[in-house]
């Protein structure tokens, strides 16, 4: 994940979680920046400590470490009801490491995604960020599918501006928001704690007032919030 784009995501996360109980970040791209959280708190007239003690991080430096984190350390605090939100930052980053065989990367990614789906079914609230992977590599499919049906937030750039893009169908539709305005709405893109099962997840998402990205390059209105796959309010 590009560092500037990741800062945008972190800034958005920070604002969104100022009044949350706890946030657990799994950092797969070495982009976690505690200053982003401290700054967000100060901008709202709060002390940095207000948020710094409630945000937790673990950094993975290999795909196998990432797999171990997902399998052994999630959900944090043993998956208690109404547990904290888990943010996976730069999920794709380590899987782009070409010194590892593609088959091995694909196998581990599939395992990671399987585990994430399992976590989601048990009520863990997940936020996943990744960069759009090269289309010709097929092993990204589980990650893109996960993003498509769960409303994963992706950080990227368009015409020099930082955006948060929520995927609706895994391709290029859905909505785009300017982060400064839309950062607080990040939570709204998360699947609700009681996300539907596999059946619901296969249902096509509903879009309201969105403009496809890449068809003329227009952006949807900033207030266009995607409704979740099962039609519940976000």
């Amino acid at each position: 994940m590009p560092r500037r784009a990741s800062s945008a995501v972190l800034g958005g996360l920070a604002r969104a979680f100022l009044h949350e109980r706890e946030l657990y970040c799994v950092d797969g791209a070495n982009v976690f920046d505690p200053y982003a959280f401290g700054q967000a708190a100060r901008m709202r007239g709060l002390s940095g400590e207000h948020i710094l003690d409630r945000v937790f991080v673990t950094r993975a430096f290999t795909i196998h470490q990432l797999q171990a984190v997902v399998e052994e350390m999630l959900p944090p605090r043993g998956g208690e009801a109404d547990g904290p939100v888990v943010a996976m930052l730069g999920l794709d980053h380590l899987f782009r490491e070409e010194t590892l065989r593609a088959a091995e990367r694909g196998r581990v990614l599939a395992e990671v995604m399987k585990r994430l789906r399992g976590l989601e079914r048990t009520g863990t609230r997940l936020l996943v960020t990744y960069e759009r992977p090269p289309p010709r590599e097929r092993f990204w499919k589980p990650m893109l599918e996960f993003g498509a049906v769960r409303g994963t937030v992706r950080a990227g750039t368009a015409k020099g501006e930082f955006i948060i893009e929520g995927h609706g169908n895994g391709t290029d539709s859905s909505y785009i928001q300017h982060l400064p305005a839309g950062g607080d709405r990040l939570l709204e893109t998360l699947p609700p704690g009681t996300a539907g099962g596999a059946e619901d997840s296969l249902r096509p998402p509903v879009h309201e007032g969105t403009t496809p990205l890449g068809r003329g390059g227009e952006r949807g209105p900033p207030d266009s919030i995607r409704r979740d796959a099962d039609g519940d309010p976000p």
């Binding site: 976690f32 401290g38 948020i51 710094l52 945000v55 937790f56 993975a60 470490q65 171990a68 350390m73």
Partner: peptide, 16 residues
């Protein structure tokens, strides 16, 4: 063969 030991959870303040 594969390095799997993950970093333990630490708060943002501890990370700083």
């Amino acid at each position: 063969w594969k390095k799997t030991a993950p970093e333990a959870w630490k708060s943002a303040r501890q990370l700083l």
